[in-house]
Design a protein around this nucleic acid. Structure first.
Length: 213
DNA sequence: GCGACAG
DNA sequence: ATCTTGTCGC
């Protein structure tokens, strides 16, 4: 089992170092191939699914799936311990390239400005956006921006059926562009951007199929 | 000390 | 996240 000193001292220092590398702005180049990765869990295994989709046509370009052993428990604020490895492993299986990665969890909307999307974004040095269903920290202001210590770190987006999601910069993109892209990539009647919604759907499906044998 | 706490 | 049947609602 993981020593608590790693969770309470080593990991936070690593997160602060990674947060320092986060770039909160992006280039003007069009983001064509969008990747969404999500992970489901069953017993001792993590089932990761990556979906790459064309941002204009919404055509699925590629799907990759992986099964890896679960190494860590879920600890709020230390989510990267549990989910980063399955995500990186699944991403490695992709044959086609992508311009933007969407992840289930926060980016810089995090106590140490380094949630899952920022951690992975800095590691792979690509644009990433964090999309979470619940707040880990911060307060929503009157304009739906989420503040930590009076600094804007994210945005609360109202999806279909009054379902809300919290958007934050992962890496190499602005919050403004993140909000725009999430809206653009979300289908009518849905609240989660399509690549992530499919990744979630497929990973749960893969998980159930796998466990029936 | 107590409660809150991404998936 | 996952464990789980029927059930309330658009």
């Amino acid at each position: 089992m993981l020593p608590s000193s790693v969770i309470y001292y080593v990991l936070p220092r690593l997160q602060e170092m990674i947060a320092y590398r986060v770039v909160q702005s992006g280039e003007c180049t069009p983001l064509k191939n969008i990747c969404g990765i999500d992970v489901s869990y069953k017993d001792d295994f993590a089932f990761g699914t990556a979906v790459v989709m064309d941002s204009i046509s919404f055509d699925t370009m590629e799907v990759a799936e992986s099964v890896t052993p679960i190494k860590f428990p879920y600890i709020p604020g230390a989510f990267i311990l549990r989910e980063a490895t399955p995500i990186l492993y699944t991403m490695r299986l992709l044959r086609c390239d992508f311009d933007l990665l969407l992840l289930d969890g926060h980016g810089m909307l995090h106590p140490r400005k380094c949630g899952l999307a920022s951690f992975v974004g800095v590691l792979i040095n690509k644009p990433t956006i964090g999309i979470a269903k619940k707040l880990l920290c911060g307060e929503v202001n009157s304009e739906y921006f989420v503040e930590i210590d009076r600094t804007i770190c994210g945005y609360m987006h109202m999806g279909a059926s009054n379902k809300r999601i919290y958007i934050s910069v992962g890496n190499r993109i602005s919050l403004r562009d993140s909000i725009k892209l999430v809206s653009k990539l979300t289908r009518e009647g849905q609240s989660i951007p399509e690549p992530l919604r499919l990744a979630d759907l497929y990973s749960k499906h893969h998980c159930k199929l796998f466990c029936r044998n």
